[in-house]
């Protein structure tokens, strides 16, 4: 009996009324759209779930909206999806030890280039003097 009760309790979110395609509150809708743009459609090429017309994207959109309706924060929703699908679902790669180089490389190149440029200009100026 307890088990059945527990089962029913766990089923509640699934039994909740289906979430509408759009939230009536514009602020919530904007938030949902922004979040959807941060999530990659795993079965498409280069599209977010916000843009894609695939069934997968529709499912994840539904999931996101369900969780927003349940009061979850953006972070919680992202964590939930990462736990389910891995980091690949995030359009913005997480900042962690194995992605430091990814995030820093452009600026390292910029700094190195700036250093080389500075030396070059100094040398060129000395040559003219």
């Amino acid at each position: 009996m307890k088990a059945v009760l527990l089962f029913l309790l766990l089923m509640v979110p699934a039994l909740a009324a289906p979430v509408a395609d759009t939230f009536s509150n514009p602020a919530t809708e904007t938030r949902a759209r922004a979040l959807q743009r941060q999530l990659r459609c795993l079965v498409c090429q280069g599209e977010s779930i916000d843009e894609s017309g695939s069934p997968f994207a529709a499912d994840v959109r539904h999931l996101v909206r369900q969780q927003i309706a349940d009061g979850a924060s953006d972070q919680q929703i992202q964590d939930f999806l990462v736990a389910r699908y891995g980091d690949f679902i995030l359009m913005k790669p997480p900042l962690q030890p194995d992605t430091w180089l990814l995030w820093l490389a452009p600026f390292l190149v910029l700094a190195a280039g700036g250093g080389v440029a500075w030396l070059t200009v100094k040398k060129a100026a000395a040559r003219g003097a």
Binding site: R40, G86, D87, M91
Partner: peptide, 26 residues
Amino acid sequence: CVFVGTLYPLVLDAINGTKISVGPPY
């Protein structure tokens, strides 16, 4: 920046199997 963003996921996947995606926010 474009080079790293394009190739990093491939290299990372080859090294330790971590799958990340580099999208517009990056």
